[in-house]
């Protein structure tokens, strides 16, 4: 596992036009780790993720990737380093699953180039295999389920072969089986050295998979701010979570397995 810090946020304010949605966010992400951005509805998780993907400009502060200023990177370089998976991927074209995933190769190809070279074909096949979409590859995206679309979106980002993978609510459309399969996929990608940042609501998923969690808190009539950041086992405490989600809850650990990372949250 790489221990080098791949991404660093320093006092970031982000939002739309000049209005900040989140402010004062600072954290570092080491290479080959998984970080989660958590928080209640409207806390600005997706806004922060899009800011890291440079889809929204930084209003204040600085984001560095591999020690370079993110805002100074040419788009053609950035799109090879960072892949972004939106909550809902859709196309106005009725493309097949394979055609959709192949678009992930766009940053590696010339802008007019349609023909795939050996690297493109290999990356496409690896992405399809990793997301178990082989049976669906020729099916139209309009005919597959929400969970399958989510896997297609992830496959597209894997075909991009990025260093940093950004996932916006990847479990939103997945049933339990596919959530587990996504957990395993993320763990495998991590073991292969990929760095992942994901917005998540599922605290159990965060506890199980993530090395770090950054929690945002919504404030009345002011931008959201960073409430806490750190390893899930240390920061996902009853007090922190009550403060983040403004509701009472209990934490139940699996007493039969002292090494288990999972924490279950009860009412």
């Amino acid at each position: 596992m790489t221990e080098k810090c791949i991404l660093q946020l320093d006092e970031i304010s982000a939002g739309f036009n000049t209005k900040a949605v989140v402010e004062g966010v600072s954290f570092k992400v080491k290479g080959g780790t998984i970080a989660a951005i958590a928080g209640g509805n409207g806390a600005g998780k997706s806004t922060l993720l899009k800011t890291i993907a440079r889809l929204i400009p930084v209003l204040k502060g600085k984001i560095s990737i591999d020690a370079s200023d993110l805002s100074a990177l040419p788009l053609c370089v950035l799109s090879k380093k960072i892949a972004y998976v939106p909550q809902d991927l859709s196309s106005s074209r009725d493309l097949s699953v394979e055609e959709m995933i192949a678009m992930g190769r766009n940053p590696h190809q010339k802008w007019w180039q349609w023909r795939s070279d050996q690297n493109d074909k290999l990356a496409l096949e690896n992405a399809i295999k990793a997301t178990e979409l082989d049976d669906l590859r020729h099916k139209a995206v309009s005919e597959i389920s929400g969970g399958e679309k989510q896997r297609t979106a992830i496959a597209m980002s894997l075909a991009q072969e990025p260093e940093l993978l950004l996932l916006d609510e990847p479990t939103a459309h997945l049933d339990f089986k596919h959530q587990k399969s996504l957990m395993q996929l993320l763990m495998r990608l991590k073991s292969e050295g990929m760095t992942i940042i994901t917005c998540l609501h599922d605290l159990n998923f965060i506890s199980e998979v993530c090395d770090q969690v950054v929690c945002l808190k919504k404030t009345v009539r002011a931008p959201s701010s960073q409430l806490f950041a750190g390893p899930p086992r240390e920061v996902l405490t009853r007090e922190n979570l009550q403060s983040a989600f403004e509701t009472d809850l209990r934490i139940i650990r699996d007493s039969t397995d002292p090494d288990s990372k999972s924490i279950f949250f009860g009412l």
Partner: peptide, 23 residues
Amino acid sequence: LLLSKQIRVLSLGDETARALGVE
């Protein structure tokens, strides 16, 4: 015709297209 592949990527929406390197 030269821009046809970029037209396809644009069909994914502005944000996704930009994340895929399209200006």
